[in-house]
Nucleic acid binder design. Structure first.
Lengths: 343, 343
DNA sequence: ACAATTATTGACAGCGCTACCATCGGATTG
DNA sequence: CAATCCGATGGTAGCGCTGTCAATAATTGT
């Protein structure tokens, strides 16, 4: 004999079916495709499920059906505030659905991403959400071979693997600089940390806006591959001042850097926005209450997470969106740090 | 006949076993208990696995073994920075192990927590990590009936369900106030938002420290159940000033509030630390670079996450710690905002 | 040297569910 | 009224793996 007989207390689908007076397969259909049941059976199974407190065994379901009800989510960082918001959206919109979220963190390593994708492929997720559009050829091949809906998030571009939700970081960077230029600034510094592909494209927006105004100067640019912190913002700003003392504005690729710049200005008695204008990116909550309040580019991170999951679930269930690419845009939130000083 | 025959390309344990010239069960043992195999077979199976690129089917494994290799993690919030660090620790220390993390978010609702725990119980996780020590009676009963290691994180107390990693929020609050008192302050305000049980205990530390100095005054306390933001810090501080204009220090239950207070002081031209001392909680990164730099209570959040997972995995594998409660302590990081003004 | 013990290995059945037909009654049609 | 179709239901046979126990090989003690 194989093993101990089933613990008497265990409730299987068979028990539910017996109580409802139907075959196990009908009870099974109650979960997968309730419309296929006649109303009477559907009600009988429903009450049997409730009476027994039946909970499906997901492992058995996955084994028999060759599918899971897991949506894999691959992000590059857990520390970055930006992803906290995305994840909130992801979890919010997965709740109430039958799908559960499996999170994986690449730490900004494309090799790690490949490894994770291979792992996911082996487990046959129902859907997959990955960050960005710069997968390696290998990663992209895995994604394309994956037999499930895939959504790329955080940015948009041509040739989606499947679906996309995001916005144009290039446009956002360009818009931020255009705004600063409108304020009459000429020497606009660029501060970048952890130059991932999206930050890179913000830079390109900066560069092209500056070039269009014939104001681009490599001395205005300070970047590093070090992860972002507020403190780093101060440090990079100090470097920038050293190589371009005549700057009249700074565009920071994220709000942490911007806050660091503000603090460094306070330390050096540089008046903001009088002597220097500051623009950040992401519009984290604190930007509105800083003194002076800090201009930033608002990105719809929570909505990105929500939509990504919704789109994936819809696609799983056969409701593919007519448009595979969803542009959630951005808003430039202009505050005191980039407008004429109010005396 | 049941279904289509197995796709020719699919690699099962059987194929590995065949290639290695052993029985499937031996190949199975290679994964679960490699020490039980003779060296020669172990090597043969190992190379067969690599040659075929075999990846175990977790669903089949879970079904057959009545166990999963999932560690459930229940936290109250994804937005709160504090949990980002914890999660980083959690994911870092689960990587490389055979266990995967299943995250669930209660949004600070104890009913939601009950619901999630019930769900987890049904799926038989290998281990469970839950936040805090204030579960409902029902939740606690579920945890105790769960046939797996459980670690409570973020704080410690008597009567753990199983294991605990954290620190005493009461002591931390008390220590922060003691420090402020040592600076000669007498009218120390308390600012609290989202009064969860841990924040509540920080308050008790504040209250008792103040009472011990005969300085407690309800007018010095401003709290709200609204979730924490930097902006809220400014608002609460304004309320506090209104009801106790003579305060000479503020203890904030977290760093966001503290930053909000600092900004509000800048707005009102209140000199910090000259007119007002500020102490925060958690020691987020920005505290060190604020102007003035802000004193805070450093908590070892990343380490909490790491240890929680390690302890759970160790317990799963039979290596129970001698001490079920691990106190990771805290450090008061004294900075400019709570020390005599350096002119 | 031989029984007793221990390390290795294998056979078997079945975990709980669902894919794939087959069936069966009733509605539709010419 | 028989032929056809369709929607609802059920039977059967696994999905890929591991728990249990039995069998065998290697090792040890006296």
């Amino acid at each position: 004999m194989g093993r101990k007989q089933t613990k008497s207390g265990k409730i299987r689908l068979t028990e539910v079916a017996k109580l409802a007076g139907v075959s196990p397969i009908t009870a099974s259909r109650f979960f997968r495709n309730p419309e296929a049941l006649s109303l009477s059976k559907r009600e009988r199974v429903d009450s049997a499920v409730k009476e027994l407190g039946y909970v499906p065994n997901l492992a058995a379901r996955a084994l028999a059906s060759h599918r899971t009800e897991v949506i894999g989510v691959v992000i590059p960082s857990l520390t970055n505030n930006v992803f906290a918001d995305v994840l909130r959206g992801v979890y919010d919109s997965s709740e109430g659905s039958r799908y559960s979220i499996q999170l994986a963190n690449t730490r900004y390593s494309i090799l790690q991403e490949e490894k994770l994708l291979r792992l996911f492929r082996a487990q046959k997720p129902a859907g997959l959400i990955v960050t960005g559009i710069n997968q390696t050829a290998e990663s992209r091949a895995i994604l394309e071979s994956m037999n499930c809906p895939v959504t790329q998030i955080m940015e948009i571009g041509d040739s989606p693997v499947d679906m996309m939700v995001g916005f144009s970081h290039y446009d956002a960077g360009f818009a931020a600089i255009s705004h600063i230029l409108e304020q009459g600034c000429q020497r606009i510094g660029f501060l970048g940390a952890r130059m991932d592909p999206r930050v890179q494209r913000r830079f390109e927006g900066y560069r092209d806006a500056m070039k269009a105004a014939s104001l681009f100067d490599p001395n205005l640019v300070v970047t590093t591959s070090i992860p972002t912190t507020v403190t780093l913002g101060g440090t990079l700003f100090a470097d920038l001042l050293a190589q371009a003392p005549d700057i009249d504005a700074v565009f920071c690729v994220n709000d942490d850097l911007a806050l660091g710049v503000l603090f460094e200005c306070q330390r050096r008695q540089i008046s903001v926005p009088g002597d220097l204008k500051i623009v950040g990116f992401n519009d984290l909550e604190f930007m509105a209450s800083a003194v002076p309040s800090l201009t930033s580019v608002r990105t719809n991170r929570y909505e990105m997470g929500r939509h990504a999951v919704t789109m994936v679930i819809d696609a799983i269930e056969g409701r593919r969106p007519k448009e595979p690419v969803l542009d959630l845009g951005f808003q430039l939130i202009v505050r005191e740090s980039s407008t004429p000083q109010s005396i």
